[in-house]
Design a binder for these strands. Structure first.
Lengths: 236, 236
DNA sequence: AGGTTAAAGTTGTCAGACAACTTTGCGGTC
DNA sequence: GACCGCAAAGTTGTCTGACAACTTTAACCT
């Protein structure tokens, strides 16, 4: 029987990884910067190459670092957002049950409400026209349910992008990644729903263009809550 | 000059890691389950042990797996929440600037608002008494600013825990982890603030106990927004 | 039966070698 | 001088083998 104790002493690789991680988090190593070569790290820490590689593999798996054979390892350009996006995507994938879906939907609803208000109140004309363009793309794709679903996702991401909120954009990106796509795609079992969805999106776009935050929020909430109901019905 | 292309072919270790990850995310490997031994993985994939180890190191760094020398590697018990909590903590650590703080605060405010409403409306007596207990702990620690700050964090986590929302509890845990502690601690530069903070918390507790969601939300928002103002003032 | 100890099993670390790929620098060509 | 080709050096990826550190199992003894 395996012992209960889960705490084990950190390995050499973990210690080295922690040190590099700290250099990244503190800003001493910035996105795009090159890490010391494995040879240098071996010399600095007095350990073997395999331990150093264990550290780099860990950082790479977490999205902090990318390695290119023959060139070196570099701090990832999207070191700020990718790990969060991916771990949220994994969280969503692990929560395929009813309650998990409800909780993820709570988050999505909160984030989009916040952003649609901000976009309506503070968004620039260019931001609003991008939302309109995303809506037009949905109309064009209404023949193909899969591509329509993708355009739907793009619309909601544009909504958050227009609010200029990096954290919320990252969160929504995570919710939509991986199997999180079921958020939007699985709603379109019947073609009749497409027309309804288009109408609801158009209402949001027009309220945003009119600068009416309350109305935009209302239409968005209506759309999202109705989508959830559809999803739960079809999910059984 | 390094080439622009960031996309490189996945390594053998990454492919193996992806496969194990899929087994975990799909539920075929459940928390506490033991992974195949390195020897078995070597045989199954026809690769070397170093490639297999690269895969396991990646999963371990991401918190999906823990390894115990002499025993084996196991799917982590908290595989669902830890990666999200940690990546959010890292995100917060990387966002020490003004705008990043504001965005993180947006998230915190949304989450706590949601939870305090739910606790006031649907919370059971036991949940509410735990919130009261967390408040009493704060009063006891008012002499030591550091411990008071910790009790403050514990109070807000209790608030979210009482709402029985795993996702939001995980998010708040991430916001408070690591240097995210500055959220609460850095607010107590002056002892005079302690009394103010205690009063605001007490108002929240009482509104929750009275089952008044609107009032509880109002007091909580007041407290948090005022805390943010204090923080921004002291941050300069 | 219970405890002790040896054996087997498993992950951690080290070392060395070569493969695959990138970057640099040299030399030649125009 | 600018450009190209090509060799050389530099760097990460993979394989192999060995031993250390630790855990689990199994045999043994009392």
């Amino acid at each position: 029987m395996p012992s209960k104790r889960a705490r084990t002493n950190p390995t050499v690789g973990e210690r080295i990884g922690r040190e590099i991680e700290l250099a990244i988090l503190s800003g001493r190593l910035r996105p795009g910067d090159r890490l010391p070569t494995e040879e240098e790290l071996v010399a600095r820490h007095g350990s073997s190459r395999s331990a150093v590689r264990e550290a780099v593999h860990g950082l790479r798996a977490r999205g902090l670092v990318i390695s290119r054979r023959g060139s070196g390892s570099y701090v990832a350009a999207d070191v700020g957002t990718r790990p969060l996006r991916e771990s949220l995507g994994h969280y969503a994938t692990l929560r395929a049950n009813e309650r998990g879906y409800t909780e993820l939907f709570d988050l999505r609803l909160m984030v989009e409400r916040f952003c649609v208000r901000r976009l309506a109140l503070l968004g620039k004309a260019a931001d609003r026209s991008r939302l309109r363009a995303a809506f037009e793309r949905m109309k064009m794709e209404k023949g193909d349910l899969t591509r329509f679903g993708e355009a739907d996702i793009a619309f909601h991401q544009e909504l958050v992008a227009g609010a200029k909120h990096e954290l919320f954009a990252t969160i929504l990106g995570g919710l939509f990644s991986d199997l999180g796509r079921r958020f939007a795609q699985d709603s379109y079992h019947r073609v009749s729903q497409v027309r309804q969805v288009l109408l609801e999106h158009e209402a949001v776009v027009e309220a945003v263009e009119a600068g009416d935050a309350d109305l935009a929020e209302g239409h968005l909430v209506t759309h999202l809550v109705r989508s959830r109901a559809d999803f739960q019905k079809s999910d059984g």
